[in-house]
Design a protein around this nucleic acid. Structure first.
Length: 265
DNA sequence: TCTTTATGGTGAG
DNA sequence: TCACCCTAAAGAT
């Protein structure tokens, strides 16, 4: 289940496995038969990610994939399983294969159409150097609670429901703060922390935002599930930093978690 | 064997 | 704001 770090990790793995190879493609489920046929036998030039979007480039044709909430795109190099009947797309280079299921988007587009997708997105901290200015500008235009605005992919690309709560905690910002009332320091912290956390998540392959000193642990591997994050899904439990009881609020049609002791404003 | 849940997003009203 | 889409695994019965 993907936020930006998961998608970038997928793109890297798929690029390493499949770029430069002639791929076989099929759609066991049948809903992407025409697209799969168009890719079948073609050489993959590259796979890359922007925010939560994946792009597989075959000459001028681009396979655009968005996993949504439930999509998966695991790859295998041995013990390759049979695709399930729900598998939308299988790509294979003969020795490795990847099985796409449950995507929100899976379509073949032109390079221009792919560029239009990324143009509509805000800066991706994993990709956009100097994106802080665009991020700050977009925040300044919004009166909505910052917790809602952080989920808007046209403001910043790649943040999801875990990171929005954790990043606001790490910056000590109350989730209901109107985005256009954030200080320059707040904005700087949000952008920097988003980048730091996404890069860490990309490296670890999971979202662990905790600073080890706050839970008295030496290694991230030692952490229990409950200790990996400060607030996400921790309502009713004491804050790892100040002991206040973590709270949950619906912000932007989804649950956000926050600490009333550490996040004031 | 059910029901629920999930780190997402769209389109209608 | 709501209904709705997609799938798989975990939890409840």
């Amino acid at each position: 289940m993907p936020e930006g770090h998961t998608i970038h990790r997928l793109a890297r793995r798929h690029h390493a496995l499949f770029a430069g190879a002639t791929l076989a493609a099929s759609s066991p489920q049948g809903r992407f038969s025409a697209g799969a046929a168009a890719i079948d036998g073609r050489v993959l030039d590259s796979a890359d990610a922007y925010g939560k979007h994946l792009f597989y480039r075959f000459g001028g044709d681009v396979l655009h994939v968005h996993l949504g909430l439930i999509g998966r795109f695991p790859s295998y190099t041995r013990d390759i399983p049979e695709p399930t009947p729900a598998t939308r797309l299988v790509i294979s280079n003969g020795s490795a294969a990847a099985h796409l299921s449950g995507p929100m988007t899976c379509r073949l587009v032109t390079a221009d159409e792919a560029a239009a997708v990324t143009a509509a997105l805000g800066p991706d901290p994993l990709r956009t150097r100097g994106g802080r200015r665009a991020f700050a500008t977009a925040l300044g235009r919004r009166r909505a609670p910052v917790a809602a605005v952080l989920l808007d992919q046209s403001v910043i690309a790649g943040i999801g429901n875990v990171y929005r709560s954790e990043i606001l905690f790490l910056c000590g910002i109350h989730p209901a703060t109107p985005a256009n009332e954030l200080s320059d320091d707040d904005i700087e912290c949000l952008w920097r922390t988003a980048g730091t956390q996404l890069r860490l998540g990309l490296r670890l392959g999971r979202i662990i935002t905790i600073r080890l000193a706050d839970v008295g642990a030496r290694r991230r591997l030692d952490l229990d599930e409950d200790e990996r994050r400060y607030v996400y899904h921790r309502d009713g439990l004491p804050c790892h930093r100040c002991g206040s009881i973590v709270r949950r609020s619906d912000i932007g049609a989804r649950s956000a978690w926050w600490c009333p002791g550490c996040q004031v404003g």
